[in-house]
C-alpha cells in the first residue's frame, strides 16, 4: 500500500468499541448543539430569558456547549484508554 502511516501503527483490538462510543457521544453532543441552533431559529427571544445567577439562556447554553465538549472529551478518553488497556493487554497475554 502506498499510504502506510508515517510511523508503524500497532494492532488495536479496541477499535470497534471505541468507534461505537465515539459515534454515540457525537450524536449526544450534536443533539445538544442542534438544540441551541433550533432555539436561535424558532424562538430567539428565549435566548434572553434569565436562567440562573442572573445569566440568560444564551450565555448559559453557549458556555455550557464549550464546557460540555471539554468534559465529554475527558470521559471519552477515560473509557477509550480502559478499552485499550483491557482488550490489547488481553490479546497479547
Amino acid at each position: 500500500m502506498l499510504h502506510e502511516p508515517a510511523v508503524p501503527v500497532e494492532k488495536d483490538h479496541a477499535i470497534a468499541k471505541k468507534t461505537k462510543l465515539g459515534v454515540i457521544m457525537f450524536f449526544v453532543y450534536t443533539l445538544i448543539y442542534a438544540g441551541f441552533v433550533v432555539i436561535g431559529l424558532t424562538d430567539p427571544e428565549l435566548m434572553g430569558l434569565e436562567v440562573i445567577g442572573g445569566q440568560n439562556l444564551a450565555i448559559i447554553y453557549g458556555f455550557g456547549l464549550i464546557i460540555l465538549a471539554i468534559v465529554m472529551g475527558f470521559i471519552y478518553n477515560y473509557f477509550c484508554t480502559r478499552f485499550e488497556d483491557k482488550m490489547n493487554n488481553n490479546s497479547t497475554t
Binding site: H3, E4, P5, A6, V9, D12, I15, K18, T19, G22, V23, M25, F26, Y29, T30, Y33, F36, G62, L65, I66, A69, M72, G73, Y76
Partner: peptide, 24 residues
Amino acid sequence: SIGFLAGWVVALFLVAEPLKRLGK
C-alpha cells in the same frame, strides 16, 4: 467561538483515530 469549538467534537469522536490509522 461556540461553533469553532464544537467542531472539535466531530474531530475527536469521529475523525482523530481513524485518520491516524489511515494516513501517512
